[in-house]
Design a protein around this nucleic acid. Sequence first.
DNA 1: CGTAGTCTTGAGTATCCTCAACGAGGGTGG
DNA 2: CCACCCTCGTTGAGGATACTCAAGACTACG
Lengths: 227, 227
Amino acid sequence: MYKVQHFQSSKSLAKSIALQPITANASSSSEALRAISYVKHFKRDQEVFGQDERSDNWYGVVSGAVREYVVRSDGRRQIIDILLPGDFFGFTLRTHRWFGVQAVADDTTLECYPRQRVEALADIDPCAAKDIRARCFQAIERLEEQMLVVGTMTAQEKVRGFLSYFCDRMAVAQDDDAPLPISRYDIADMLGISVETVCRAFTDLQERGVITLQGPRRIKIVKRDQY
Amino acid sequence: MYKVQHFQSSKSLAKSIALQPITANASSSSEALRAISYVKHFKRDQEVFGQDERSDNWYGVVSGAVREYVVRSDGRRQIIDILLPGDFFGFTLRTHRWFGVQAVADDTTLECYPRQRVEALADIDPCAAKDIRARCFQAIERLEEQMLVVGTMTAQEKVRGFLSYFCDRMAVAQDDDAPLPISRYDIADMLGISVETVCRAFTDLQERGVITLQGPRRIKIVKRDQY
DNA sequence: CGTAGTCTTGAGTATCCTCAACGAGGGTGG
DNA sequence: CCACCCTCGTTGAGGATACTCAAGACTACG
């Protein structure tokens, strides 16, 4: 990696990365927008839409979690993004999808927004349009944050970054442990590392006192600051 | 990585990933939007905005290229995204930036869109609002594509994916070689690998006949399909 | 109770990082 | 003009990291 010494940034020197929560309350929907949505429930691994399907809907996660994924020609799965409650997805200009989406958790609930009706609404209701923009911005920032996590060099850092991001999102009380609805396989396929490496990172982090595990699916970040 | 055998996707089996270009012509701006923008030129490594600065503008790349980056507390730089002509960036709900942006190329030209004026315009002009949405969608898809590249396992694949993406974006004639305004260091910091590994990947790919290099900054992809 | 899926650990190997060195090109100053 | 940086690109050697394969523990579920 490029050390900072030979690239002169005017004022922004070394900075520990700790994002503030977004100021605007973007999870509150405009009434009109909510009115044209309908709710749908999904079980674990159930497909929301598949690769190559027509992109007729936008979605918002109400509860549970979903994964955006592709399956490569060699049979390997890769996860593009994992969406948590409050996240929106399915925005596109294309007519067809190039990745699939499945529910991760068993009790996943989504809001579905028919694309054409939303577009029509946005054209006559500036408030709804503003709302959609806000959600797009959220999606962009979420992806940017994850680029930062996935783009780190070591597996340790990737896993730590992922857990840090995830626990922030879960927004549990600081002293509480968060339920982790995401499997080691999902984490591995998202970070581009092997399952075994994810496991080893978990145990390493626990041994070093960074996290605490109550069973494989309950986690608590102890040293939150040192990232 | 998760092999496809033990995860049942209903119909979407192995698929080689080759994205079609986006159908809508999203680079054409609405007149009103363009009217409130102004153009700015940047030299190599010049800052468009820095970490922690107020986020008062949105930007579109006209020519050249820019990088979104952060500098970690250990002095390492990490690149979140590289933006090429036609890309828009700076969308956010936050009042302040959490990453910096610099010009990569020497002749970089940007359109600047004052945030407040754009917001005001969007509220009264549905066409402009639609235009902004389209750009957000583009940004989301660009980031998703790059998550796919950065999230691969081997350095080879990452570099190949990056070059494939880049050459597609440059949209040169198939038989022509594309100028590469991005340094090996930038590529490394974006993909989360070392510069030396990027170099070795370049030479490997050339030896295997996948790419051709006319000097380090001119590149042509020969076997475009095998990705 | 058996089976399937998940999680974890170990051993050996491949990949990639680090450090080091060197060549090429561009800019600057003498 | 030329010597002198400095940056970028490239290659080599050695060591650290992460992958692969394998096996076992644990859980959920029929």
